[in-house]
Amino acid sequence: MSKVLEIKNLKAKIGDKEILKGLNLNLEEGKVHAIMGPNGAGKSTLSKAIVGHYDVEVTDGEIIYKGKNIVDEEPEERALEGIFLSFQNPVEIPGVNNAYFLRTAVNARRKHLGLPELNAAEFLREMRAKVEELGMKKELINRSLNEGFSGGEKKRNEILQMMMLQPDVVILDEIDSGLDIDALRAVSEGINKSKDGKRSFLVITHYSRILDYIKPDYIHVLKDGKIVKTAGPELVAQLEKEGYGSFEEN
């Protein structure tokens, strides 16, 4: 199976604090990888490092995506190449129309891929179908981006963006946080429908509950800035039984 993303000896800091301390991770094409770890292990920092967040300074190592080191690439370049992060706390942007924003993003990606841009009618048709699939309230589409959305509505909106943008690698950062059971089910269904055998997922979570809905192929345990264990889905049961304390670096 080919690797779509290879992270080699990644060291990164936020401010003066080193968070990632030589992290190694491979994402296989078409597979679901889950990263689990205690609070403060560096899970969100890893996701931010992959998408090029301004908070995170990569001090060493490589992030190889489709054969190219992207550490110095701008966030929009990474996104256009097909990396998507579903944020733990999506930002509210008053005044930016949700649909207009998404159409701009979709057409930027399509242009990058050499595809014709969608006109307003084509875009709306496609988006409306996805909105229904996700059980989203239709009126959210014409509101300002995430403004006044509940936690569940924000997460659904993230998944809507993912479904419309058709990325190659999807990073889901605590996608289950703040979701009730119905929202969790809807969001998970949206993610599962997006599995096409080529798209890879990196599910970052503190709790194993989400993995009942999105079945992982691999579990990675992240502790103190490093991946300390990689195994199959059976690892979840061990983690639930023993906690993170028993895992040390391989």
Binding site: E74, E76, A79, G95, F101, A105
Partner: peptide
Amino acid sequence: DEQALFYMRSRGIKEEDAKKMLILAFA
């Protein structure tokens, strides 16, 4: 807003375009 700017860029919108969208929203 730096966070808003980053969010938009993380969806593939160029920094310059994202700034313009935020300015229009402000107005």
